[in-house]
Design a protein around this nucleic acid. Structure first.
Length: 856
RNA sequence: GCCCGCUUGGCGGAACCGGUAGACGCAGCGGACUUAAAAUCCGCUUUCCGAAAGGAAGUGGGGGUUCAAGUCCCUCAGCGGGCACCA
């Protein structure tokens, strides 16, 4: 590397130490300033930080430092989402204790993060795997139990056969485990659930109030909760006392019903199967088919006619009751009425089994007598037909009429149904928070009393055997019942790690408190004003946290509903991918680019296939290690690059050329200050009475930059802030001071540049700040303020169009009169040529912007 | 299948409420400095015609609204994301 003016290798650690010694970023108590809680999603200590972290924390730190400069009391903490399966996998593979592995990783990653120069309050650091954290979580769990927010359910669960644990619905992706990728199996187990469904309505409705959340995330949560209004209706069964209850949102189509179908897991199916071995075989066959994407894609609609009949509530028709593979037990009641004309699945089923298809919703432009449904069900709007007392009604009117009648008959009720299920939190794993419950043969389920918390994980565990190490432990689970003192057993399951991350942002407010949280402190700091992280948590973590805070409110811990007032979801960091002739992936360091753009392997020079830019991943070998980049270019360069070019919400492509460019800019700024500083007036010199033209132009650029950068940061348009800073640097770089007033303006420009750049490149900013003669820290300097008088130009350039085509540009005084603008426009030679011998019909003047002459 | 988003130079992107398309950066080209290279500095860089002045075309395709459309409406296509037998 060539000799450089600014030695970041020496300067960056020096400033990091200066901040630490000054305690610059330790959040104090309420002090009259407005508060700002800035939080980035805490990392899982997987081993080393990756570029995604660097991008996330570069953005968060920009916001935190900006808020500090704007006079906010800022809380900006960091911690570790430290429980989870990878630690156990490492334990198995490397024969190292999960705790040891985790704490080693935390040490490495903490050291790496500290080289980034983030304005974090490290005194509040927490790790969820520490008993000092999870003991409070156990307390919260027992509080939730007492508040009726926890249930024990025997239920069909998603079983990951590789990780040998249960997964929540949110953790099943395309029918596969979100971590292992193994096809998920169905298994019946007893497990603890959080009653998130109790808040389904609230969680949906409150989304509208989250104005500083991306619409996309709100929509995803709304769809995930999946509120749908409909009704439950009970059909009498011929020859039986009991009834069959179904859920439907299309009760308007009740006269189009031609069959009934129940899930293979429905109790009635099980009952009938006891005397019907063919049915039993059919049910077994259904269960053998997985729920993976491929299976469903190919799966045919299959049914088994039970021979039972349901009675249509209005016309008394007998409807065959089938057991059908496409009916889900855990949605609605696990039973439906089939209306083939208006539901594609029912239609497929009806065609296969030769059942009747009656159209009952007729499109406005069709005729009741001739309208037919072919291979595609009609799902649109229309008028009801072929439906007795419903004929001629709209869909909405018919729904109301059917609901009213069925309610009057006592055969149905209007209800709301949700896609959302309760959150299963039991995991058959070791490295998680033990569930603080004892199973006593005489007392039943007993929550561990507060004074016996925490239930600590045993250290001496083995991972030789598959399954749950806590369950295998020889002594750990054997305890005396807290109530009666007799021999009892601990629950050997641990909590889903998403529980850990559902309240860590509250713990940061008072991280060493003896109680899980302090109401006043939490009340002061919460909600998080700006939360930043990846979209992948749009549903899981963000929904669980919203539920958790509501649960805590019910338990009296706090007085608000929403944890995150502002949310920003950042894009991924991507890199080109490379494949050799044999199809194997190559690392970026293993290829080179010829002058003509072809890519070759460094070893041997064989041509390499250039793949598209994808999220950095080890499997595709397209990763760049942040530590190496920071060592080579410095943290400021890496941070600046992360904020340049790409809008923060979009993916950012990592390129070597881009990083080199960022580094050149770092050096350029340092050089600009160094070259100018000797001749500048002292800091704080009084402003001269007047400036020359060049100085006025420079000052205009400075104040416009301050104004623009501020607005862009507020709006999360960091790439535009960067562009404006470049523009300002260009203006300052091209300025040659001629007199004292010029030099004053030059100092103003350089100081502004330093302060604008400070939240993005804090080390460089400190270095330049000191070089400019300031004793204090740039980190403590207030944000620059734009002089409004200097932000507006007094001359403007307006475009002149003739019939919508741009023909000339006019330099005019700001707010020039309409007459002056018209006269100037018509005086222009090009404009005259464009008008030619046409007459001017209309003259549109948009002040200070554009003129359009309509001629013809 | 349903829902959502995106599509602008060689590349990343900018363009506020409909008002001068291409800011800023990267890459490229030319020049200065240098014995030379690197670094640095200056200039050019949407395409086509033209020596220039200037003109024509142009924001995925087609259509529409408007004095004026990258921006609004309709439609088609491609790419990406979410959900997925949700009754």
């Amino acid at each position: 590397m060539a000799r450089e003016r600014y030695n970041f290798r020496e300067a960056e650690p020096r400033w990091q130490k200066a901040w630490e010694e000054a305690g610059s970023f330790e959040a104090g108590p309420a002090d009259g300033r407005p508060k700002a809680y800035v939080l980035e999603m805490f990392p899982y200590p997987s081993g080393r930080i990756h570029m995604g972290h660097v991008r996330n924390y570069a953005m968060g730190d920009l916001v935190a430092r900006y808020k500090r400069a704007r006079g906010f009391n800022v809380l900006h903490p960091m911690g570790w989402d430290a429980f989870g399966l990878p630690a156990e996998n490492a334990a198995m593979a490397k024969k190292i204790h999960p705790g040891q592995w985790t704490y080693d990783n935390i040490a490495t990653m903490r050291r790496q993060l500290k080289t980034m120069g983030l304005s974090l309050d490290w005194s509040r650091e927490i790790a969820t795997c520490h008993p000092g954290y999870y003991r409070h979580q156990q307390k919260l769990f027992t509080d939730f139990m007492k508040a009726g927010l926890v249930d024990r359910k025997e239920a069909w669960v998603n079983w990951d056969p590789v990780d040998m644990t249960v997964l929540a619905n949110e953790q099943v992706v395309d029918g596969k485990g979100w971590r292992s990728g193994a096809p998920v199996e169905k298994k019946k187990l007893s497990q603890w659930v959080f009653r998130i469904t109790e808040f389904a309505d609230e969680l949906t409705d409150a989304l509208d109030g989250l104005e500083r959340w991306p619409d996309k995330v709100r929509l995803m949560q709304k769809n995930w909760i999946g509120r749908s209004e409909g009704m439950r209706m009970r059909f009498a069964l011929a020859g039986r006392q009991d009834e069959l209850e179904v859920f439907t949102t299309r009760h308007d189509t009740i006269f189009g019903a031609s069959f009934m179908a129940i899930s293979p897991e429905h109790p009635l199916a099980a009952e009938l199967a006891a005397d019907d071995s063919d049915l039993a075989a059919f049910i077994a066959e259904c269960q053998r088919m997985g729920t993976s994407e491929e299976v469903i894609e190919r799966a045919e609609k299959l049914g088994y006619d039970t021979g039972l009949y349901a009675i249509h509530p209005f016309d008394g028709r007998k409807l065959h009751v089938y057991v059908a593979n496409f009916v889900l037990m855990d949605y609605g009641t696990g039973a439906i009425f089939g209306c083939p004309a208006h539901d594609q699945r029912d239609l497929d089923f009806a065609r296969k089994y030769g059942l009747a298809v009656f159209p009952v919703v007729i499109p406005e432009d069709a005729d009741v007598t001739t309208f037919k449904v072919g291979e595609e069900a009609y799902k649109g709007d229309g008028r009801i037909g072929n439906s007795d007392f419903l004929d001629g009604l709209t869909v909405e009117e018919a729904k109301a009429e059917v609901a009213n009648r069925l309610e009057a008959m006592g055969r149905g009720t209007r209800t709301v149904n949700y896609r959302l299920r309760d959150w299963g939190v039991s995991r058959q794993r070791y490295w998680g928070c033990p569930i603080p419950v004892v199973h006593c043969p005489s007392c039943g389920i007993v929550p561990v009393p507060d004074e016996q918390l925490p239930v600590e994980l045993p250290q001496d565990v083995t991972f030789e055997r598959p399954g749950n190490p806590l369950d295998h432990h020889p002594t750990w689970k054997h305890v005396a019942c807290p109530t009666c003192g007799k021999d009892a057993l601990r629950d050997t399951d641990t909590l889903d790690t998403f529980v850990d991350s559902s309240w860590y942002f509250l713990r940061f407010c008072s991280p060493r408190d003896d109680a899980p949280m302090d109401k006043d402190t939490v009340g002061y700091w919460m909600p998080v004003d700006q939360y930043i992280g990846g979209v992948e948590h749009a549903v899981l973590h963000l929904l669980y946290s919203r539920f958790f805070v509501r649960g805590l409110r019910r338990c009296g811990y706090l007085d608000f509903d929403e944890p995150f007032a502002g949310l920003f979801t950042q894009g991924m960091v991507t890199h080109e991918t490379y494949r050799g002739a044999d199809g194997s992936w190559l690392e970026p360091s293993e290829v080179e680019r010829d002058g003509d753009g072809t890519v070759r392997a460094l070893a041997g020079g064989a041509p390499v296939t250039l793949g598209r830019s994808e999220k950095m991943s080890k499997s595709k070998k397209n990763v760049v290690d942040p530590e190496r980049i920071i060592a080579e270019y410095g943290a400021d360069t890496a941070r600046w690059f992360m904020l340049s070019d790409s809008p923060p919400e979009r993916d950012l492509e990592w390129t070597d050329a881009g990083v080199a460019g960022a580094h050149r800019f770092v050096q350029r700024l340092a050089r600009m200050v160094g070259d100018a500083v000797e001749d500048l007036p002292a800091p704080g010199s009084p402003m001269p009475a007047s400036f020359g033209e060049a100085a006025n132009t420079l000052r205009g650029a400075v104040h416009k930059a301050i104004d623009g950068v501020t607005a862009d940061i507020e709006a999360f348009h960091f790439n535009r802030s960067v562009a404006r800073i470049h523009e300002l640097a260009n203006a300052v770089g091209g300025f040659a001071p001629a007199d004292a007033a010029d030099r004053w303006a030059q100092r103003e420009a350089l100081e502004s540049l330093v302060l604008l750049v400070n939240p993005m490149m804090p080390h460089l900013a400190e270095e330049m700040w000191r070089e400019l003669g300031h004793g204090g820290l740039a980190a403590d300097a207030p944000w620059p303020v734009a002089d409004p008088a200097l932000v507006v130009e007094d001359t403007v350039t307006l475009g002149v169009q003739v019939n919508g085509k741009m023909r000339a540009k006019l330099a005019m005084a700001r707010d020039a009169s309409r007459e002056a603008v018209e006269a100037a426009a018509l005086a222009d030679e090009n404009v005259q040529r464009a008008i030619g011998d046409q007459s001017v019909r209309k003259f549109i003047v948009v002040p200070n912007k554009i003129v359009n002459i309509v001629a013809g």
